[in-house]
Amino acid sequence: MEYLLLQILNGVQLGLLMFLLAAGLTLTFGIMDLVNLAHGSLYMMGAYIAWTLIAWTDSFVMGALLTLPATFLLGVVVERVVARRLYARDHLDQVLATFGLILFFNELVRVIWGPAGKSIAVPKFLAHTIEIMPGAPYPAYRFAIILVGAAVALLLAWLVTRTRVGMLIRAGASNRRMIAALGVNIELLFSLVFGLGAVFAALAGLMAAPLTSVKIGMGDDILILTFVIIVIGGIGSIKGAFVAAMLVGQIDIIGRAFLPDMLKTFLSPSAAASAAPSISQVLVYVLMAGVLIWRPTGLFGQKN
């Protein structure tokens, strides 16, 4: 019972990290109509920049806080130099150019930080476990990720539904030509949204770093999963991204945690151990295919 609860929490934690990535991606998709494959690179850059700044300030929190404005700037630069030229292009051009960005960033990281991976230590004040329930210790750091992720999700919900900028973002997502015609400085709005997306991606990257490792290409696989999430949720829908991220988080974790035991009943232990992560990944893609067949524009997508 405790084990199940802990795994569900792990799923929530993964889901919130994925939501941070998906929120930025679904906004750039929905508002600028941009297929941005380089979003995973911003996740990676966030982790690497955080590694440097944490080493420099000798404090996890300070380093993390400094990373956010740094990646906002990076996002704005990428938007101004490359992304902006792609909005009016067709999806194929966007795929190609942002694929080029991935190669560029992966190589840039190799030039600056070297080919070996880096690791960020769990901050000392979170390097213990807390008892969320009697007899069920849970790592404080993972719990902190859940808190930060939930706080950012609420902040984003507030930003999008309650503020003027959010109103413009929603207006842009439903009809970007119209709000440009109404005299909104759409270029500024695009830069802002792209920068914001970069900050969320970087935050996900730096929070995930102590749990995994900081390495070249770390954003490539998670990028695909993020795309799956925003497609399941419906492109442009923050609510959809949240629901889909939670679903995918649970499927992934539950699959990894419980499939090996179930598979062991009819497979050898080693075959079960190697098949289980694959099957949980496959389940995610099956979910996506199922959703798209049922609703070709995702759970919360607009019907055209």
Binding site: F227, V231, S274, I279, Y285, L292, P296
Partner: peptide, 27 residues
């Protein structure tokens, strides 16, 4: 049945599905 970006993504997803099946074939 899907269009535009959804088509790009669903073809990618089906490819990933086979990729992970391949990665899980211990034998």
């Amino acid at each position: 049945r899907t269009r535009g970006v959804y088509f790009i993504m669903i073809t990618l997803a089906f490819a990933q599905l086979v990729y992970y099946v391949g990665a899980g074939l211990e034998a």
